[in-house]
């Protein structure tokens, strides 16, 4: 059952003022209308530093309401610092019910993972994004990347993937793996492992992405094709492990490697704590 909380009356509902929420809401609607395009918005100072999910928090604050149940994960886990502090933030400023169970949540704010449990129609997945521009490491100028997106001129990205194959024999990018949304915009899926990329494709849930420092919001509507970039002779592949989860025995989930003693003994466990607990 979700945990219930009471709103701290010292704050406006969900922390942000109404004018700011309207501005973010308008940006979200434009982001949904142009899937994968990064909409600039007037990002606000939040009571935690950049890099801790200020973009995701602003998106969540603009959409969350009394009827919602919120789940927050950081690297798949509900009990890590970032997840705990953001969940407590919204419990306090929005008095919203919180949960760790993926199917119970109406809004899931996430850092660096997509839950293993398939999402449903009506759920909203809010991603925290550090660097929204997928071309940034290839072209530092914003004016230039904006033009490349306008012209759909993505050769530079294909070349970088090709160079990876020439150097390493395969596309070595394992997280933040670039995708093309509905055959148009190339988009950064945020630093999720490429293992999660297939879950973005035609997902019944709405995906919203918020970048606080860079002040960008973008979105993938439900059932929208999301293709991981690849080549005919080097098709996109996800990670696999020869081990299974030491706690639940799953062979299908994304595994974290843990060092458990001073002799270097290793253990693999599910990164998604809710999924793992549900299987034990």
């Amino acid at each position: 059952m979700p945990d219930t909380h009471t709103q701290d009356p010292a704050y406006n509902y969900a922390y942000l003022d109404e004018q700011t929420k309207r501005m973010i809401r308008r940006a979200i609607l434009k982001a949904v209308a142009v899937p994968g395009y990064q909409v600039p918005f007037g990002g606000r100072e939040m009571p935690l530093p950049y890099g801790w999910g200020t973009g995701g928090i602003q998106v969540t604050a603009a959409i969350i309401g009394q009827a919602d149940t919120l789940k927050v994960i950081d690297q798949g886990a509900d009990d890590t610092t970032n997840a705990v502090s953001i969940r407590r933030f919204f419990a306090r400023v929005a008095g919203v019910a919180t949960t760790t169970a993926t199917p119970e949540a109406t809004i899931i704010q996430t850092r660096h993972r997509v839950p293993e449990t398939p999402l449903m129609d009506g759920q909203i997945l809010v991603f925290q994004v550090p660097i929204p521009e997928p071309l940034r490491m290839l072209e530092p100028r914003e004016t230039e990347t904006r033009t490349l997106h306008a012209l759909q001129e993505y050769g530079v990205m294909q070349v970088s993937l090709y160079e990876s194959i020439a150097r390493h024999g395969r596309i070595s990018k394992s997280y933040n793996y670039p995708v093309q949304v509905n055959g148009r915009y190339i988009m950064s899926p945020s630093p999720i492992p490429k293992f999660d990329n297939p879950k973005l494709d035609r997902s019944p849930a709405l995906q919203l992405y918020g970048a606080g420092r860079e002040k960008r919001i973008y979105a993938v509507p439900p059932y929208t094709p999301v293709k991981s970039l690849d080549f005919d002779d080097h098709p996109f592949e996800i990670e696999s492990w020869s081990e299974c989860c030491a706690l639940c025995g799953s062979r299908e989930s994304f595994l974290d490697e843990m060092i458990v003693d001073d002799q270097g003994k290793r253990l693999f466990v599910c990164s998604d704590t809710d999924y793992c607990e549900g299987r034990r």
Binding site: K21, Q66, G122, A219, P221
Partner: peptide, 19 residues
């Protein structure tokens, strides 16, 4: 109730726009 009514209505508009 401007804050909560606008939030509920926005979510319905967002539901429409994303479906």
């Amino acid at each position: 109730d401007p804050a909560h009514d606008a939030q509920r209505l926005f979510r319905q508009v967002l539901d429409a726009m994303s479906h």
